[in-house]
């Protein structure tokens, strides 16, 4: 029988690299077989300990209703999309409406001013006697229709 397996050969064996000569040696050498078994057992214990420890950590439990939450998140994002579309539509309709309203108001104001001016003119020309020191030419109508009226 050859000398014992080197540390590297034992590591290779544990890694799954089962060379025929290492296999033959382990079959015959109780010491190397025990070392390989000890190492494999130690790593098995390690895996077991990590599993138990991990299962007790915060976050190890499967989140309840995971997909329902996801789908709800999807619904919420869909609702948000619709809200944004609605807001855009409101803005698209409201802005021209507001501009129209503003123009309409200024037109009414202009018409009011015109009406007031006309009333003043009417009042001025419908007086029967001139005011004192009023220039005479202002009282004479220029248009023929207007002259006929007086």
């Amino acid at each position: 029988m050859s000398a014992h397996l080197s540390s590297e050969q034992i590591s290779r064996w544990t890694a799954g690299d089962h060379a025929p000569e290492a296999y033959r040696h382990i079959q015959e050498c109780a010491q190397c077989a025990a070392e390989v078994a000890r190492l494999e057992n130690l790593f098995e214990e390690f895996g077991y300990s990590v599993s138990r420890w991990s299962a007790l950590q915060r976050g190890a439990d499967t989140p309840g209703r995971w997909m329902r939450l996801e789908s709800r998140r999807g619904v919420y994002s869909g609702m948000l999309r619709w809200k944004l579309v609605a807001a855009a539509l409101v803005i698209a309709f409201a802005v021209p409406l507001w501009i129209n309203l503003k123009e309409h108001r200024s037109q009414i104001e202009a018409m009011d001013m015109d009406a007031r001016l006309l009333e003043e003119v009417n009042a001025s020309i419908s007086r029967s006697a001139p005011a004192s020191m009023e220039p005479l030419m202002q009282l004479i109508a220029c248009e023929p229709d207007a002259a006929a009226k007086y």
């Binding site: 991990s54 499967t62 209703r65 997909m67």
Partner: peptide, 17 residues
Amino acid sequence: EDVVSIHWQRIYRFVLA
């Protein structure tokens, strides 16, 4: 949802380690 409940612990364990 079944996939999550079956595999969550395993994936979490690997990621945590």
